[in-house]
Amino acid sequence: MNRVFILRPEPAAGRTAAKAAALDLDARVHPLFAPQPVAWTPPPPTDFEALLLTSAHGVRLAGPELAAYRGLPAYAVGEATARALRDAGFADVVAGVGDGSAIAARVAAHGHRRLLHLGGTTVAPMAADGIDVTRIAVYSMTSLPPDPALIADAVAGSILLVHSPRAGERLAAQIAQDARAALHIVAISPVALAACGAGWASGRAAARPVDDEMLALAARLCE
Score class of each variant (00 low, 15 high):
residue 3 R to I: 11
residue 5 F to T: 05
residue 6 I to Q: 03
residue 6 I to C: 03
residue 8 R to T: 01
residue 8 R to A: 02
residue 9 P to H: 00
residue 9 P to E: 09
residue 10 E to T: 08
residue 11 P to K: 02
residue 14 G to Y: 09
residue 17 A to H: 04
residue 20 A to F: 00
residue 20 A to S: 06
residue 20 A to H: 02
residue 22 A to G: 08
residue 26 D to T: 11
residue 27 A to T: 04
residue 30 H to E: 06
residue 30 H to M: 15
residue 31 P to S: 15
residue 31 P to L: 15
residue 33 F to D: 04
residue 33 F to N: 00
residue 34 A to T: 11
residue 37 P to D: 13
residue 37 P to W: 12
residue 39 A to K: 07
residue 41 T to L: 14
residue 44 P to V: 05
residue 44 P to N: 13
residue 44 P to F: 12
residue 49 E to Y: 06
residue 49 E to A: 04
residue 54 T to R: 13
residue 57 H to N: 15
residue 60 R to K: 10
residue 65 E to Q: 14
residue 65 E to R: 14
residue 66 L to M: 05
residue 66 L to W: 05
residue 68 A to L: 13
residue 70 R to I: 13
residue 70 R to S: 07
residue 70 R to C: 11
residue 73 P to V: 04
residue 76 A to Q: 00
residue 77 V to N: 02
residue 78 G to Q: 04
residue 81 T to C: 01
residue 82 A to V: 00
residue 84 A to P: 04
residue 85 L to M: 09
residue 88 A to T: 09
residue 88 A to P: 03
residue 90 F to H: 07
residue 94 V to Y: 15
residue 95 A to N: 08
residue 95 A to G: 10
residue 96 G to N: 04
residue 100 G to H: 07
residue 101 S to R: 06
residue 103 I to V: 13
residue 111 G to M: 10
residue 111 G to I: 07
residue 112 H to E: 08
residue 112 H to M: 11
residue 112 H to K: 11
residue 112 H to I: 07
residue 115 L to K: 09
residue 123 V to N: 07
residue 124 A to F: 00
residue 126 M to L: 11
residue 129 D to P: 00
residue 130 G to D: 09
residue 132 D to M: 14
residue 133 V to Y: 00
residue 135 R to Y: 12
residue 135 R to W: 02
residue 137 A to P: 09
residue 138 V to P: 00
residue 139 Y to S: 03
residue 140 S to H: 15
residue 142 T to D: 11
residue 143 S to G: 09
residue 143 S to Q: 13
residue 143 S to Y: 06
residue 148 P to H: 08
residue 149 A to V: 11
residue 151 I to K: 12
residue 154 A to D: 06
residue 156 A to F: 06
residue 156 A to H: 06
residue 159 I to Y: 04
residue 164 S to D: 10
residue 164 S to T: 05
residue 166 R to G: 14
residue 167 A to G: 12
residue 168 G to H: 03
residue 172 A to G: 04
residue 173 A to H: 13
residue 174 Q to G: 08
residue 174 Q to T: 09
residue 175 I to G: 01
residue 175 I to F: 14
residue 176 A to N: 14
residue 177 Q to S: 15
residue 178 D to R: 10
residue 178 D to V: 06
residue 179 A to T: 04
residue 181 A to M: 08
residue 182 A to D: 12
residue 185 I to V: 03
residue 187 A to T: 07
residue 188 I to H: 01
residue 189 S to L: 12
residue 190 P to V: 07
residue 192 A to E: 05
residue 193 L to N: 03
residue 194 A to V: 04
residue 195 A to P: 08
residue 197 G to K: 00
residue 200 W to A: 03
residue 202 S to W: 13
residue 205 A to L: 10
residue 206 A to V: 02
residue 207 A to T: 09
residue 208 R to K: 08
residue 217 L to N: 03
residue 219 A to S: 10
residue 219 A to M: 08
residue 220 R to N: 14
residue 222 C to Y: 07
